Amino acid sequence: MGKNTLMRWCIKVHAEKSGNQAYLSCLPLLMENVGLIFTKEDLNEVSEEVAKYKVGAPARVGLVAPIDVVVPQGNTSLDPSQTSFFQVLNIPTKINKGTIKIITPIELIKKGDKVGSSEAALLAKLRIRPFSYGLVVQYVYEDGSVFSPQVLDFIEDDLIEKFLVGLSMAEKVKEYLKDRNKFVVFVASATPATSAAPAATVEEQKKEPAEESDEDMGFSLFD
């Protein structure tokens, strides 16, 4: 982790000294709050380990809630003079042994809503830090290529399935290449569905000599 300009400089220096230009593909990715993790271990295990490290964060005013925030039922340890905070948010309470007790769990903030000043103040008083921050894998780099982290979600069965689908499509392409008539029929059958030529235009084309028609086109579909 470090300043992006410093990380870019390190990669460029390494490329110049070692002659290894592969890491230069990482330069466009070094934007905003990012870091680099170098590993020889299994990438899935590394991704899972990174996801474990999160820290709690308070609900600040104006922040868009990434999750639903629920205030739990139970004693708050707040004295009765602070009942107004709960009344503003329509949270049912009662006084129990000199402290405020929340009667039922309340969904205070819904995912996607902005945190208001009253919600933020109440959560701060209850010492509830509903949100969390941590590292998220954004890209996967290997041998000069950059991939989406979604590649880590693929299991062996998924790869085999996609490979078999590719093979089935390749066989169809081979059939068209072996028999050009199949390919011509395919194109001709698709043309009327997309647009129909006016009858007058078709008649005019029939009147043209074959030599002029070939000269106008200048190419064949399979040349």
Rank of each mutant, 00 (worst) to 15 (best):
L89G: 04
P105C: 02
P105R: 06
V69D: 01
L135Q: 02
I103Q: 11
D179W: 00
P72S: 10
S25E: 12
P66H: 08
E32H: 15
S195V: 03
G144I: 11
K162S: 05
R180C: 03
C26Q: 10
S145M: 15
K110Q: 08
G98V: 10
E204F: 12
P130V: 12
L122I: 12
T83A: 07
E161V: 14
E171V: 10
V184D: 13
R8S: 13
Y176R: 14
S18H: 12
K178C: 08
A200N: 08
M1L: 14
A124S: 10
E32A: 07
I67K: 02
M217P: 03
D214V: 07
F222A: 08
F86M: 06
Y53M: 06
S148A: 07
T191K: 11
F222C: 11
L24C: 14
P130W: 00
P198G: 00
M169E: 02
S195L: 09
E156D: 13
N75Q: 02
S168E: 05
T194L: 07
E32M: 15
I109D: 00
F154V: 01
L159N: 12
T191M: 04
Q21H: 12
S168D: 09
Q82L: 13
L122Q: 00
A210K: 09
S132H: 11
P72N: 07
S148P: 14
V70A: 06
I106L: 04
G112N: 09
N44K: 09
L36C: 11
K3W: 14
G56C: 06
V185I: 11
A124Y: 06
E16Y: 03
D113M: 06
K40S: 07
K174Y: 01
C10Q: 13
L29E: 00
S84H: 06
G74H: 04
T39R: 04
E208Q: 09
P80M: 04
K174W: 03
A65Q: 14
Q138R: 14
K111I: 15
V137G: 10
V88W: 02
I103T: 09
H14M: 06
D68L: 13
R180L: 05
G2R: 07
Y53W: 02
K178N: 08
Q73R: 04
S77G: 09
P198M: 05
I37A: 01
G2H: 13
F163P: 02
E161G: 09
K3D: 13
R129K: 06
L24Y: 12
P92V: 00
P130I: 00
D157I: 08
L36E: 06
A196P: 10
S220L: 15
N33H: 15
D79T: 04
I67W: 15
S195T: 06
Q73Y: 03
M217T: 01
L24V: 06
L30P: 01
P209Q: 10
E107V: 10
E161R: 12
E16A: 03
K162M: 14
K206H: 03
E156H: 12
F38K: 08
F186A: 08
V71H: 02
N33K: 13
F183W: 08
S84V: 13
M7S: 08
V136E: 05
P58E: 02
I67V: 12
I100A: 05
I155Q: 06
A199N: 11
